[in-house]
Computed example of a mutant assay.
Amino acid sequence: MSEARLVFRITVRGRVQGVGFRAFVAREARRLALAGWARNCDDGAVEIVAAGPRGALDALVETARRGPPLARVDDLRQEETSEAALVERRGDVEF
């Protein structure tokens, strides 16, 4: 039996725009075989929606909490969301 597919919405605040954050997260998401997207928000945050097994999603959250070298993560919030979030297509970086 395969592990259930979950969908997480992750919002990251801090110095997360202009530092390669979305590309960093997308590379890790692809490595973890997750589906989803990431985008910059008008308020300076980065929003990530990712779908896959819990273990891979947890690993992505830890990667996002760390961020790339030039980033500074001040706050990270995650919540489970619905499959509908995947098709919002609001992301400017898809994985």
Rank of each mutant, 00 (worst) to 15 (best):
S2K: 10
E3L: 15
A4F: 09
R5G: 02
L6K: 05
L6G: 03
L6H: 08
L6N: 06
V7C: 01
F8M: 11
R9V: 13
R9S: 15
T11M: 03
T11E: 05
T11N: 04
T11R: 02
V12M: 04
V12Y: 00
G14Y: 00
G14P: 03
G14V: 00
R15C: 06
V16T: 00
V16R: 02
V16S: 03
V16Y: 05
Q17N: 08
G18F: 14
G18R: 13
G20Q: 12
G20N: 10
F21E: 06
F21W: 09
R22D: 08
R22I: 05
F24P: 00
F24N: 02
F24W: 09
A26M: 06
A26Q: 12
R27V: 02
R30N: 11
R30C: 13
R31V: 00
L32Q: 13
L32P: 11
A33L: 14
A35G: 12
A35M: 14
A35I: 12
W37P: 05
A38S: 12
C41Y: 02
D43E: 11
D43M: 10
D43Q: 09
D43F: 06
D43K: 02
A45H: 01
I48D: 11
A50D: 09
A50Q: 07
A50E: 06
A50F: 04
A50I: 11
G52A: 13
P53M: 11
R54G: 05
A56Q: 15
A56K: 09
A56H: 07
L57Q: 10
D58I: 10
L60Y: 09
L60T: 05
V61Y: 07
E62M: 15
E62A: 15
E62S: 14
A64K: 04
A64L: 10
P68T: 08
P68V: 13
L70V: 00
A71C: 01
A71F: 00
V73N: 01
V73R: 01
D74A: 04
D75M: 01
L76W: 00
L76Q: 00
R77I: 08
R77M: 09
Q78W: 09
Q78A: 14
T81Q: 11
T81W: 04
S82V: 08
E83T: 03
E83L: 07
E83V: 12
A84T: 10
A84S: 14
L86F: 06
L86G: 00
V87H: 06
V87W: 10
V87F: 14
E88L: 15
R89I: 02
G91A: 11
D92Q: 07
D92G: 04
D92W: 07
D92N: 11
V93P: 05
V93W: 08
V93N: 07
E94N: 10
